[in-house]
């Protein structure tokens, strides 16, 4: 028991160190030229199609199921679009995009950092006077912060569009009725943006940390990657719960 607590305290301490170094490095001006652009491309463009396709299908399924249920009860589908837009903006858009990024970006970061650990490349970085967290995690952190927001916006738009298409083709809801943004309040947008930033920060830090903790050979890298995906997906869900809870009583209270 005591041993388990000590180990958990050690992990928490090292994770906090990575968080502190990442935040400090992000605020500092000294950067590797070109590295940020490369990571923006890696995190952003490479995930664009993936996010669009996934969110498109999720939009279709959600709208289809909702319309099906409502048809059984009241048959009034005029409010589906307005409510769907609202919940997409403050909940599904950011959270589902982040879940997708947690698997794709998280696995990529953990595998890359982890294999650099087991081949001593991270030690070689240290011997060049480079702080590994600053060199490896900070550019990915900044890129993820920007790209989670951008991809969430894209994902939300695609999900809404595909949802509208489903409502029109399967339930004959006219687009002029479906695409109704009047329910989306400033509080919803703010909640969505806060979630994006929280997810965008959590995914690279947690995945990078899992990569840095990799030990042993290729098996260790595999473990690190699995742990990164599981932990960052879990972090997205927990953050979603916490931010939703707080926002419900503050930002969204008036709406």
């Amino acid at each position: 028991m005591r041993w388990a607590w000590l180990m958990m305290a050690g992990v928490a301490r090292r994770l906090l160190r990575v968080v502190a170094l990442t935040l400090r490095g992000a605020l500092r001006a000294r950067r590797e030229p070109g590295e940020l652009q490369r990571q923006l491309y890696q995190v952003g463009n490479r995930s664009l199609l993936f996010v669009m396709v996934t969110l498109g299908f999720i939009g279709m399924v959600l709208v289809f199921q909702t319309c099906l249920q409502i048809n059984r009860v009241t048959g009034d589908l005029s409010q589906v679009g307005a409510e769907f837009a609202k919940i997409l903006v403050h909940e599904f858009g950011p959270s589902l995009t982040a879940m997708m990024l947690a698997t794709r970006v998280g696995a990529g970061i953990a595998a890359e950092v982890g294999s650099m650990i087991v081949t001593e490349q991270v030690d070689a970085l240290r011997m060049c006077g480079v702080e590994p967290v600053e060199y490896l995690i900070v550019p990915r952190f900044l890129a993820s912060l920007v790209m989670t927001l951008v991809l969430s916006i894209v994902g939300t738009v695609v999900a809404l569009g595909m949802g509208g298409l489903t409502a029109y083709s399967s339930f004959h809801v006219p687009p002029s009725v479906f695409f109704d943004l009047s329910r989306v309040r400033l509080g919803d947008v703010a909640t969505g943006i806060i979630k994006c930033l929280a997810y965008g920060a959590a995914i690279p830090i947690i995945s990078g940390f899992c990569g840095l903790e990799a030990r042993g050979g290729s098996e260790g890298v595999g473990w690190a990657t699995t742990r990164a995906v599981v932990s960052s997906s879990f972090a997205v869900i927990v953050l979603d719960f916490l931010i939703s809870g707080v926002a419900f009583f503050t930002l969204q209270a008036s709406g």
């Binding site: 081949t119 001593e120 490349q121 030690d123 070689a124 240290r126 011997m127 060049c128 006077g129």
Partner: peptide, 14 residues
């Protein structure tokens, strides 16, 4: 450390 040159056993090239 930046004043030390190290040749790693497995090279550790980037």
């Amino acid at each position: 450390q930046s004043r030390i040159g190290m040749l790693f056993q497995n090279n550790a090239l980037f």
